[in-house]
Computed example of a mutant assay.
Amino acid sequence: MTAGVDLGRPQAQAIGSDEDVVRVRQLVRTVAVAVKLSLVDQTKLVTAASELARNTLIYGGGGSAEVTAVEDGRRRGVRIVFADSGPGISDLALALTDGYTTGGGLGLGLSGARRLVDDFDLKSAVGEGTRVTITKWSR
């Protein structure tokens, strides 16, 4: 157990407010430190998680994040699953294009988060919600 976090099981955090986005960032940082990601990789992962948590809140109407310490036999990492039951994304390819936004931002949230992590998986269905899974591995 590290700083109140049981690395042996997924850690869930509801996302329903700006304060919850901060809690996601803190949880991700705690798990990233515990699995010994480098400071650079910690920063990349926390930045990606912050963007995705904010998207979950703003575009998905809230949802959850599940943070898990993972191993693949050679290395350790952190996997985060963001899920919402919002309106979904009708055109995934367009949503992942730099500069595309439906909210007036810079349009770098999804595409930027994808560049910051090692594994990125986006599933969405209109009217059903969105699920984004990211993983950052130790080097």
Results as ranks from 00 to 15, higher is better:
76 R>C: 02
31 V>S: 03
58 I>Q: 10
123 K>P: 07
102 T>Q: 14
20 D>E: 08
67 V>C: 04
86 G>Q: 01
14 A>F: 07
120 F>N: 08
12 A>S: 14
60 G>D: 05
137 W>D: 07
43 T>D: 14
19 E>C: 07
131 R>H: 05
65 A>Y: 00
51 E>V: 05
73 G>V: 11
114 R>Q: 14
105 G>Q: 06
36 K>C: 09
29 R>N: 12
115 R>D: 11
109 G>D: 13
116 L>G: 06
94 L>R: 15
97 T>G: 08
62 G>I: 09
4 G>M: 03
134 I>E: 06
137 W>Y: 11
17 S>N: 11
42 Q>K: 01
18 D>V: 12
96 L>T: 05
118 D>G: 15
132 V>Q: 03
130 T>P: 07
119 D>G: 00
116 L>Q: 06
27 L>F: 04
106 L>E: 13
19 E>H: 13
119 D>M: 10
109 G>E: 11
5 V>Q: 04
73 G>N: 09
21 V>W: 00
44 K>E: 10
103 G>R: 13
41 D>L: 05
115 R>E: 12
131 R>M: 12
52 L>H: 01
44 K>N: 13
134 I>A: 04
26 Q>P: 01
112 G>L: 02
11 Q>W: 07
62 G>Q: 10
116 L>W: 08
53 A>K: 00
105 G>R: 10
57 L>C: 02
89 I>R: 04
66 E>R: 15
18 D>I: 09
52 L>E: 04
52 L>Y: 07
32 A>T: 12
27 L>V: 02
136 K>V: 08
27 L>Y: 07
2 T>M: 11
97 T>W: 02
54 R>I: 01
106 L>C: 12
110 L>T: 09
109 G>Q: 11
22 V>A: 12
106 L>F: 12
84 D>E: 11
43 T>E: 12
36 K>R: 15
83 A>V: 11
79 R>D: 03
102 T>W: 13
56 T>P: 06
139 R>W: 10
5 V>G: 05
27 L>W: 02
44 K>L: 13
135 T>I: 15
40 V>C: 00
125 A>Q: 15
72 D>A: 11
69 A>W: 01
25 R>F: 05
128 E>T: 14
60 G>H: 07
138 S>A: 15
88 G>V: 06
14 A>C: 08
131 R>Y: 01
139 R>C: 01
31 V>M: 03
